[in-house]
Amino acid sequence: MKISTLEYVIREVFFSLRRNSWMAVASVSTVAVSLFILGMFMILVMNMNRMAESLESQVEISVYLKDEVSESSIEDIRGMLESMQGIDKVTFVDKAEAMSRFEERLGEQKFLLEAIGDTNPLPNSFEVKVKHPDMVKAAADEIAKIKGVESAKYGQDVVQHMFDITRLIRIFGFALMILLGGATLFIISNTIRLTVFARRKEIAIMKYVGATDWFIRWPFLLEGIVLGCFGGVFAAFALRLAYGIVTNKIYETLAFFPLIPMFPFIGYVGIGIMICGMAIGAIGSTISLKRFLKA
């Protein structure tokens, strides 16, 4: 593109936005609101993902050993566990520690243990962490086959439930993003359609005097991108504010809640939202112009 054409395009965009300033304000606002909602859902879905990952990563396999297993066999079993594929960490918990943990968990109801006297019915066990949550079931099945292992448990139902919920949230969030993206596209393309309609005579004259489709398209395309970008910038600032408020509120009551820290996360979301706005603006303009550019 020639410099003079670039100047022309920028001037046209500026004039058009000034001429239809109220229209521009209205469409930037609607785009900002849509992108804000879109961004909120993005943040929600990403945090849900993180939470699910965090919960998933905490899934452990408890490997209970038979009482008759000797100390040397325990070491053998540890060796076998550690050499298995996909195993992250193996921790031994002996009977005594298991009992003290149990006592701790019972808290004020510790007196219940008096009923069993000095005997310790809890078995020796290993706590096994796997590298990827998907591997839990396979690893547990494998471990259960090891000689000397009584059972390998990992709370199958809970894990499955969590996987289901996470998947649902991801699908719902994705569908909602598509829906809101479509709505934003509709808003921008309508605004540009009005601009195009207001300037249809000009477009016709441009065609009579031999302007190429791209020459005609550029100012509208840039206008759409500018509207989308401004909408995106406002939405990004609003998201930053909102996320700050929400994280503060949550941390006040749940200090260890696994939220994604504000920085640099919100910066990435902001940039993503702006790019999203600009892309939607460009696509919206292209759709609006299509009819007017038929030769």
Partner: peptide
């Protein structure tokens, strides 16, 4: 091409209307 209804751009001056035909074909300034 010349039409019965002139088809000029109302918000452009005489010179701008004429220059417009050169501008859109990216003629040197």
């Amino acid at each position: 091409v010349v039409f019965q209804d002139y088809r000029l751009l109302p918000d452009k001056t005489v010179a701008e209307n004429v220059a417009f035909a050169m501008q859109v074909i990216e003629a040197p300034r």
